[in-house]
């Protein structure tokens, strides 16, 4: 592998972000790929935010209660809805990528995408309603 000639181009350096997220003129599969990356980055950031919020518990009940009050604000609930979208999409597309990536159903990967993401969207809508009404 080491003797493979790299594709490095000094005139046009690699630009991963553009390569991943420039979906202009691309197919549904690239859109799925880009959204998967985006939700992955978002969920990773959320994980650290979540841990830092949980650390409020060690500061006593007052700080936690004030956070809970903030968490009930409609704007905060809207962020929960965004988070829910990231979770259900990443989960559904992740199942597709795992299956296809092991050679299962790759000939019908687009159908698999529509079915799994369709299920995810139903879960998302139900979840979003529950976030605001539950």
């Amino acid at each position: 592998m080491d003797d493979i000639q790299p594709t490095t181009d000094p005139v046009r350096p690699k630009a991963p972000l553009r390569s991943w997220f420039d979906v202009r003129g691309r197919s549904m599969s690239t859109l799925a790929f880009a959204l998967n990356r985006l939700t992955a980055v978002g969920l990773t950031i959320y994980l650290f935010l979540h841990l830092s919020v949980l650390s409020l518990l060690v500061r006593g009940p007052e700080s936690w209660d004030s956070f809970v009050a903030l968490a009930k604000h409609p704007l905060f609930l809207l962020l929960d809805v965004v988070l829910l979208f990231g979770v259900v999409y990443h989960m559904a597309n992740g199942i597709r990528v795992a299956l296809v990536g092991m050679g299962v159903g790759h000939a019908r990967h687009k159908t698999l995408f529509y079915v799994l993401v369709g299920i995810a969207l139903v879960l998302f809508v139900v979840g979003a309603v529950l976030i605001f009404t539950g």
């Binding site: 197919s27 690239t30 790929f33 990528v97 296809v100 990536g101």
Partner: peptide, 9 residues
């Protein structure tokens, strides 16, 4: 490969 399938397209 990250299954973007743009090669197929």
């Amino acid at each position: 490969c990250h299954v973007a399938y743009e090669c197929n397209e």
